[in-house]
Each structure stands twice: as C-alpha cells, then as structure tokens.
Design a binder for these strands. Structure first.
Lengths: 128, 128
DNA sequence: TTCATTATTGCAAATGATTTGCAATATGTC
DNA sequence: GACATATTGCAAATCATTTGCAATAATGAA
C-alpha cells in the first residue's frame, strides 16, 4: 500500500491515530489525537494525506450525514458496515454476508460497481 | 405528511422542484430550479424547509460523498437504493430485496434500527 | 556523507455548504 | 379584517474542506 512517495512523520502519525482510535474518525478527531499525543500537525496536511490515503485505497470514507467525512483503515478488518447511533454518534461495526446483494447489482444498468456503502441508522442501547 | 404548520408558497415550490427534477437533488439545485421557474426563494429558507421535511419524513437524505446532501421525496417511489457515477455524477435508482439483510441486523448490538442507506459507487456506461 | 531534487508541510486565506439572528412578511384563526 | 406567530429574506456566522505559496524534509545520486 503506497501513500504518496515518501513515508513521512506526519503520515506515520495519521496512520497511528486512526489505528489507535479504532473507529471511523473525522479529520478533526485525527488532528486532536495527534495534538495530544505528538507534536501538532496542520489540519490541511491531514486532509491532504487523507485524500491520498483514500485514492491509494488505504482508508475507507464513511458518511453518516453529519456534514463531515469519517475515515477508517482498510486493512484492519474485513469488509463490514456500521451502526451509527443518531443519539450519541456511537459507531459499531457489523458483519454481514451480502454476496447475493452485490451479485444482483453487478451488470445492472451497465454500471461497473467499484464500491458500495451500507449504513444503518438508529439508537444504541444507551440512547433508546 | 405534515411539514411545519403552514402550507406556504415556498414550501409548494420546493416540493414541486424536487418532484420535477426527479432525482436526488441538492439544496442549490432546488434553488436554481425555483429561480428559473418561479420567483426566487432564499437559500436559507430552502435549507430550513429541507430540514423540516426530513424530520417529518417527507424526504430522504442521500449521501454520495460529494460534500453536500441530496434530497428525494419519500412517497414518490418504493424503497430503493442508488447507483452513483463517480465520473459524471449521474444517479440511477436500483430496486432490491433485502429483507434478509435487514432482518439480520435487527436485534444486533441492541440497536433499534430506524433507517439504513445502501449506496453503490462505480462508473456508468458513458464514463467507463 | 553531503547535495540536489522535489514531495510534503505549515500557514494563511479562500471556498462551499449549511446555519443562525433578527426584523419584515405571510398564513391560518377568530 | 385584525391578531398571533410561523415563515421568509437578508446578512453575517460557522464548519468542513481546499488551495497557493514559500519553507522544510525525505530520498536517491554523487
């Protein structure tokens, strides 16, 4: 997995931050984490790296309609989806077979499917 | 389906705009459509109404990672998902049974599922 | 190891979507 | 028609993300 041309300190920190927080995180959360655990890194650099990481398939972009993107490392876990709590924003992973689902979509409309996202929205035990 | 307390001209225009454009549309697209077909409506009013319409279940919010939200009328079509072309932004509806999928998620993690979104990303015939 | 090339970073400013305060206006009610 | 207040327009604010540019750091060559 090649991100850009150089393996920089900033890049290492971003990787570590996402890995340690162990959930889909926003650019701002990565920024905050790094600020508290290492020397500060500019937000713009984080955004630029996240875009690179996304293009090189190192991270997934996850959307919950909060008005911002979340990122998670791709190699850490198998393919999965998420449960997003509308109450507290808590996020849980879910595993699910969906071969049939995906199979049915392929070749429909002549599209070439490159990616799909399935997210569930609801309330976690604490928020019900 | 009750949106706010009054059935205003602005509200009518927004409904008509979304219906006529017949695809998931952004607030800006609704604004542009109305500007061309009726008297202009303030963007802020459109946003305020879209939020109301979402809370009262009149519209679905759809996310394709473009950095903005799209809205579609809920009553127009049955439950469906979308194919979003990363090349040109073209959007197609797809129908799919997913009873099993959803059934499997219910009662998992103690979440109460209120909504789920499944989006596919790829390239349409023109963009391949 | 030092040097040179250029990818990457920090900083500041710009952009785009969305939100908010507030006074003016329009809608439903009596 | 007059009132009470939901809704709108306008302007400014906010938040996430992007961009220009000069300074800095990573990597390959000498």
């Amino acid at each position: 997995m090649k991100i850009g041309q150089r393996y920089t300190e900033v890049r290492k920190k971003i990787f570590t931050a996402i890995e340690k927080m162990d959930k889909p995180v926003s650019a701002q959360e990565i920024y905050d984490y790094i600020k508290q655990n290492y020397e500060e890194v500019d937000l713009a650099s984080i955004y630029r790296n996240l875009e690179l990481m996304n293009k090189s398939d190192a991270v997934n972009v996850i959307l919950f309609g909060e008005g911002k993107k979340r990122y998670e490392l791709k190699n850490m876990k198998g393919h999965h989806h998420h449960l997003f709590c509308e109450g507290c924003g808590d996020i849980k992973d879910i595993e699910m077979k969906e071969e049939n689902l995906i199979k049915n979509v392929k070749n429909k409309e002549g599209f070439v499917i490159k990616k799909h996202n399935l997210e569930f929205f609801g309330l976690c035990p604490n928020c019900q």
